[in-house]
Structure formats: structure tokens, C-alpha cells
Amino acid sequence: MTATTTTHGPADSVVIRTRRSLMRGLVHYRETIAVLVALVLTLVFAVTTNGVFLNHANMVSVTHVTAVLAIIAIGQSLVICAGEIDISVGSIFAMGAMTFLALAPEFGVFAAVGTALLVGFMIGAFNGYLVAYLGIPSLIITLSSLFIFRGIAYMLVQDGALRIPLAERLAMDGYLAFGSGTFFGFNNSVLWMLAFMVVLHLVMFTMPFGNRLLAVGGDAKSATSRGVRVRRVKLTAFIVVGLCAAFAGILEANKVGYADGTTGRLMELEAIAACVVGGCALAGGRMSIIGTIAGAFILASIQSYLVITGTTPQLYLVVMATFVICAALLDARVRQWALRLR
């Protein structure tokens, strides 16, 4: 059958080879951009704040905010990769934080962490079941979950808040392990983020489950025809994001020892923004864990920068939106350009 290739002369094959390596590069291209942007921003922010941005206290805060946001966003990136979306993660985050704070004083830290994770698992399974098995669009289901669990969060604390005083926290066994302990001066939430990054990166890109999840997001029909259990894969993705969001809630509650009805509000949108900035395609089938973490870092840095420079912090939302739009535009443009080279 080699004769069928005669239509391509040597000149054509050079073009084709260039195009192919471009497409191959494109897979990693977006995450590279996200990491580069993160580095450049760090540099610019450091210079324009006379180094304040990079000082230890600020970096501790930025990396903690990054870690908490990144853990949610990594989970979100799996759901987005499956071609779905979970906008209830902010509420799951709140439920995780509250469950932890409510149970830790009485039942101990580990039981509280376990129960909070179970709550995240249940909410994720609830979302995933309705989306995957009953075929209801994920936007509608998770919008409902967002309201349901936000409502429950408000009801749990009425107008007050859940809190554990610092002295009491420090006296608990194992308390320091979940975010408030330090590691080389940084919160160990960063270590947890790295653990999530390594595990989920390996799962996504070097294990059968990841191959199937990418396939489901890329072309669900073809995945089905190869025997991939699409619904089960989607359900799993929703459970993972539920666990991630609840765990992020634990880390945050552990550090500040406080949660009220507004805990984690807008976090769902930040998580989606981090994914988009990090190179996940909202249509599914294309994602990057490393890029998503870079995206979370970019958002956390901007937030911190606005605080340091005394700019209206509300501007953060506008800047975040601008980044999302730029990322989406860039993605569309570059893909079109690469495909035109065919």
C-alpha cells in the first residue's frame, strides 16, 4: 500500500512533518505557556513591588492559596477533561471545611478528615450519578448542588461560624498534618498539592484510566465502541473532584480554624479559571495537571499582588476574567493555525 503515498512529494512531506511535530508539541504547548506566564508574572510582580512579592511571608501565603485552589482545580480538570463541568466545588469545599471543624474537637482529627472526605465522595457521587446515568447536563446538576450545599452550609452555622481556637487546635493529635503544619517554612498544604499533582498526573497520563478519561472527553462515541464504560468513567471523575474539593476545604479549615456560610464562595469559578488558564479545553479531551497548577498559581499571585500594591482587591475578579478570555482566545487561535498547516 505504500504506493498510495505517491501523491506526497518530498516538499509536501516536509510540510507534513512540520505539521505533525507541531501537533505533537501542541499537547504540551498550553501548559508550557501557563508555566512561562507564571514565571514572568512572578518576576514582574517581584520587581514592581521592590521584592515584597517574593519575600518569605508573602510566598507562604501565595503558595498556600495556590495549593488549596490547585487541589480543587486538579479535580476539576478531570471533570472538564471528560467534557463535563462541576460548578458545585465551592459548596463541596465549604461542606468539607465545616464537617472537619464540627467533628475534629469531639472525634479527633483523623475521624474528622475521613468523614469530610466521605461527604465530598457522596456529593461527587450524587453529581456524577445524575449526570452520567440519568443524562442530565452537568451544568444544571452541579448548579443545583452548588445551591443545595451552599444552603446547607448557611443553615449549619445560622448566622455564626464554626471555629476552633488556636490553643485547642495545637493540642489535637495529628492536627498539624493537614495544612497548618510547616515544611521548610511553608504550609504543608503545598506538600499535599504536590502529592495530588504527582498521583493524578500519573493516573491521567500513564495509566489505563487516564487513557479512557481522555478518550471519553475526546470522542465519547468512539470510546464506547472500544468498550470503555463511559458512564462509569464520568462518575469516577465527579467523585474525584468531590474528594479533591472536600480535601481542599479541610486544608483551609485546618489552617484558619474557621468556616462560615460564605467559605469557598466563588471558588468554583476560580477553579474553572485555573483549568482554562492552565490549558484544559472546556470541550474535553485535553488537559494538563501541571498547567492547571500554574493557572492556580497565576490567580493566587494576582490576588496577592493587588493586595500588596493596595489596588482595589475587587479588581481581582476582573483581572481573572481577562486571563480566562485571553487563554481561551489563544487556545482557539493556535489550534486553528496548527490545523491550517495541514
Partner: peptide, 12 residues
């Protein structure tokens, strides 16, 4: 029209 996912490599 089905059987191959565009976003995956041939080997995958």
C-alpha cells in the same frame, strides 16, 4: 465515523 479518538495518539 467512530472508533478513533482524534485527541489521542495512534498507539493510545
Amino acid at each position: 465515523s467512530v472508533g478513533l479518538c482524534d485527541n489521542l495518539s495512534i498507539a493510545r
